[in-house]
């Protein structure tokens, strides 16, 4: 067992978990933040994307122990004072989802993309979202939403 201390969406938590516990399981099962989804559990689909110390990562392929002391941001931490993050708003406006399963991970990946590259070209968007799969294949509106968020100056912060 290991005592894990980490900050999630600005709130400090401390939990005792088995050393083999995955970060996504800590986030979902221990902290009850079920917006972070487990899609493939094999590092391919990106549904479990969260930010660890400011970088987008796949929480199904990180041990909770590796995140000990880290600052984690999940989909639940994006909206501020009841107002959606510009990337969330753009996904709503552009109907950038069908079933919605990939959406939290997709949005966290887009926030990471815009942080590195606030004005991405179409190619940059395709390359930047390579780690996220939409099982409904609804990519056209997702790319549209990224462009809208970028045009409105969502720089990922």
């Amino acid at each position: 067992m290991a005592r894990i201390k980490l900050t999630v969406n600005g709130v400090r938590h401390s939990r005792d978990v088995e050393d083999r516990t995955l970060l996504v399981d800590l986030i979902r099962d221990e902290l009850g933040l079920t917006g972070t989804h487990i899609g493939c559990d094999t590092t391919q689909c990106g549904c479990c994307t969260v930010h660890m110390n400011g970088r987008a990562v796949k929480s199904c392929t990180i041990l909770a122990a590796q995140a000990n002391g880290a600052d984690i941001l999940t989909i639940e931490g994006l909206a501020k004072d009841g107002e959606l993050h510009p990337v969330q708003q753009a996904f709503t406006d552009c109907h950038a989802l069908q079933c919605g399963f990939c959406t939290p991970g997709m949005i966290m990946a887009v926030v990471g993309l815009l942080k590195d590259n606030p004005r991405p070209s179409d190619e940059d968007i395709y390359h930047g979202l390579e780690g996220n799969l939409c099982r409904c294949t609804g990519y056209i509106n997702i790319v549209k939403a990224v462009k809208q968020a970028a045009a409105q100056g969502a720089d990922g912060h």
């Binding site: 590092t43 990106g46 994307t49 970088r55 987008a56 990562v57 796949k58 392929t61 990180i62 990946a109 990471g112 993309l113 930047g128 390579e130 780690g131 996220n132």
Partner: peptide
Amino acid sequence: IGDPQVRNM
């Protein structure tokens, strides 16, 4: 290499 999330780790 891989994808952005993989490159971040």
